[in-house]
Structure formats: C-alpha cells, structure tokens
Write a protein that binds this DNA or RNA. Structure first.
Length: 414
RNA sequence: GUGGGCGUAGCUCAGUUGGUUAGAGCGCCGGGUUGUGGUCCCGGAGGUCGGGGGUUCGAGACCCCUCGCUCACCCCA
C-alpha cells in the first residue's frame, strides 16, 4: 500500500482550507443576495444521470468518469459535474412546479484526467443553477451573479468575460451541417485531432489551439450568421442587458461548450495567469437537460467555477486569526487556566492553551501562533485575584482583575 | 491516452569523471535564560537518496521497468 495520496487528489491543510472556506462562503452569501438557495446532492448517481445529459460521445463520459458497479450490480458514477445531479433532484422531488428555482451548490467533482496546474481528479466547484426561466434575463442574472462573486473575491482585474451563442437546436443543426461540409472540404489541412472531431464533435474544432486549424476556422462559416431569428434576438437581448448593467464582455464566436446539453448562451470568465487552464468560471443555458432526463420541459442556465483555480488566482492572502495565549505558571494556575480558557471561549474569545512547558516555552509558542496577547498567571497572582496581560505586539504589560478579565481583553476579541 | 522536464531531511536545494561515515539553509527539538516570545550563540534529532531490478570490486549518480510530481497536448472548472 502506498501512503501517497491517490494521483490527482491532495490534502487541504490549514491555510488552503481557510481559503476554500472563504471562497465558498463568499459564493454562498452572494448567491443568497440573488435569492439562490443552497442545495447538496449526492456525490454519486446512477451512471445514466451523467451519460444521458453530458452526451454519450463526450470525452468526460467516454473516458473520464469514475464508474463502478454497486454491490447489487447497479452502475454508479462519482459525479464529474454538478448540473446533472441537480436536474435529477428537481425531477425526483417534483420541484418543477415551484419554478423558477434558484440553487447554489458547492462540493467535490471527480474526473479521471491527467493532473496539471489547476486541474485535479478530485476537484471542487461552486456553482449556481437557475431553472424555469426561459428568457434571456435568466442568463443575465446568472452571469451577473458570477461577476459579483469574482469581484468580491478580488479577481475583478484578473479575469475577462467571453460570451457566445450556441443557438437553439434548429440553428445548431443547420450550422453544424454547414460547418461539417466546409471542414470536410479542408480535411487534408486539419490537424489530426481535429480530423477526428469533424465526425465526433465538429463544434469542438472551433476552439482548437492548433494555429493551422484556427486559420481554417477563421475562414469558415460563422455561427452568428446561422442563428435563426429566435436565437439571434435572444443573444442580442442578453448582450443589451449586460451592457445596461455595465458587465464588460467580449463576444468570442469560437467559444463552445464541452457538454451536449448547452444551447443559446455560453460564457466563460477567463484569466491569463493560470497557464493552459485559463477558464475559471464557465457555464451556459441548457434548456433540454431536464427533459432529456425524463422530466418536464424546464429550461435552465447556470455556471460552475473551480475552487482550486480561484484559490490559485487569489494567491495566499488569508492570514490565520490571532489567538490569545493563556500562560499559567504553576500547578494551581494550570487548573485555573483551564477554567478561564473555557469561560473566555464561551464569551467568543479565541484562546490557546498549550498544556505543557515552562513560561519560556509557552511564550515561544504564543509567538509562533502569532498571538495578539498573552495572559500570564502565576499561583501567587491567582491567589490575589489578578493576572498580567501582555500585548504581544508592543510588549506592554498591565495588571488585570481576574473577575474583569473578559472586559480587559475586549480589544483582542477574535 | 500522448509528449517534455523532475523525484536526495518536514520545506527549498547542493552532491565533482561512479569511490568508503550523504551535506547546507530554513524549520523542528533541547540548552544558554526553571516569571517573559521574536534576535543572537551552542548542541541535537531527523534520510528505504520515490520503488524494484540490472551493470560494477563499488551506484544518490549509469541502464531498464515502475510509481509520483510538473508543464504542454487532449479535455475541462
């Protein structure tokens, strides 16, 4: 047995954990301001929940899912993303009648990919879903919510928003046909990767990173020219309302989505600071998803953001909270310190008790923990009902009445 | 799944054409200082040299396999 963590997984320790919490709490709070309610679905589902929604031919479904047989033979899959499970939960719980539904979620996802910077096999996402709003205002709300969260995380200057329209199914079919016809004519000039994509997933050729492919794509049919009346006006409305709200974006006609369930609006918040993993938050509209799962016709739009990538972008800026260190000197003081620590904690103070060592050791520990204050208490002092408070930054010491200790420490409250 | 770079102490790394007891800095523990932290001085602990096999009198170094990390492709958050 290896004691290494499984490839693509990692332990999240103190500062990282604090930053994770910061990100999820800001995302949850901000989502709350928009009326989004937290939902937690299971981290595994019947395999069909994902294969039917993401698309049987997509890479995630064909080679990246953690799929296993349950003891009774059912095929289960660790969720590779959050939307399908929520759609399933909406159907299971008969929630569609209460539409519009607004959900915020957070948690681990699993994809068997080759690990890379900002890419893990167990990754963590925050995301939102808005179900039951067919019009473009839903897209605008969801994108704006994402922008608010990124702003609150201090990433406003580090990301840019790109949007595109994938059209409705009708536009998509017409465009797909035109694109395939065009690409087949240039087949010999395409990269090997893209050649195979022409049959399997032709829209994927649009965002190829191969320079030769890019040139071919640039000279080919543009999706925007193939949008029918409905799709074009939908996209126009989305952009107009984003403009009204002052949400900056650029239209990227080659922006496509990896999962089959998307239609109309696709968008990504992108950074240049994370190497090849530039996408930090991505989403779009998925009107056919709930129906594809066997539920009612219920349109949806949402996004997901990778917590690891957000954390990487934010850098380490979380400094741990500063405790008050209790430093008893002597056996009687040690017992008293236990009671005092307990009482102070009930009052909301962050209190550290080291449990061993002489005064020098304990002071050293206080320094290492970056304590804001130390409370020194000797047996004789306790007997006299007094202790000494040392400000760890200034070094100033003052006597404090044991009965009024909480009041004297008020300025050091966590 | 494909390709490049890299695995030596908790961390960052050095280690000569293959040579005997594998080093440094930081951190950790202890002492100088048993009622006062950060600085300073002294001492100490800590290593299957990622793992396995091979070549050799001798391997941290060379060869093969394997695991992992990392960057890129693919795909995606």
């Amino acid at each position: 047995m290896s004691l290494q963590p499984v490839r693509g997984t990692r332990d999240i320790l103190s500062e990282d954990a604090a930053q994770f919490r910061t990100i999820t709490e800001i995302a949850r709070e901000t989502s709350g301001l928009f009326g989004y309610d937290e939902i937690a679905t299971p981290i595994f589902e019947f395999t069909g929940v994902f294969s039917r929604t993401l698309g049987e031919a997509t890479d995630v479904v064909t080679k990246e899912m953690y799929t296993f047989a349950d003891r009774n033979g059912d095929s289960l899959t660790l969720r590779p993303e959050g939307t399908a499970g929520i759609a399933r939960a909406v159907i299971s719980n008969g929630l569609a009648q209460d539409a519009p539904l607004k959900f915020y979620y957070q948690g681990p996802m699993f994809r068997h990919e080759r690990p890379q910077k900002g890419r893990y096999r167990q990754l963590h996402q925050v995301g939102v879903e808005l179900l039951g709003v067919p019009g473009p205002l839903g897209d605008v709300e969801v994108i704006t919510l994402g922008a608010h969260i990124l702003e609150r995380l201090g990433l406003h200057g580090k990301v840019r928003l790109e949007v595109n329209s994938l059209g409705d199914p009708e536009s998509r079919a017409v465009y797909r046909e035109a694109l395939v016809a065009y690409l087949n004519g240039r087949l010999g000039d395409l990269s090997e990767e893209s050649k195979s994509r022409v049959e399997r997933n032709p829209l994927r050729v649009l965002d190829s990173k191969d320079e030769g492919d890019k040139a071919i794509v640039a000279a080919g049919p543009l999706y925007s020219d193939f949008l029918n009346e409905t799709s074009a006006s939908f996209f126009g409305e989305v952009r107009a309302r984003l403009d009204d709200l002052g949400v900056a974006y650029t239209v990227n006609p080659t922006l496509v989505r990896g999962f089959d369930y998307y239609c109309h609006t696709a968008f990504e918040f992108i950074t240049e600071d994370l190497g090849a993993q530039g996408t930090v938050m991505a989403g779009g509209r998925y009107d056919g998803l709930v129906e594809a799962l066997g539920g009612p016709s219920l349109p949806g739009v949402g996004w997901a953001a990778g917590i690891e990538r957000l954390a990487l972008l934010m850098g380490h800026q979380v400094s741990p909270a500063r405790p008050i260190a209790l430093i008893p000197i002597g056996d009687a003081a040690g017992i008293m310190a236990l009671k005092i620590a307990d009482a102070l904690r009930r009052e909301g103070f962050r209190v550290d008790l080291g449990y061993s060592g002489n005064i020098g050791k304990r002071m050293k520990r206080a320094g290492k923990l970056n304590a804001c204050a130390a409370v020194l208490m000797g047996d004789d002092e306790i007997a006299a009902g007094a202790v000494t408070i040392r400000d760890m930054d200034t070094g100033e010491q003052s006597a404090a009445d044991l009965n009024r200790l909480a009041a004297c420490l008020e300025k050091y409250k966590a």
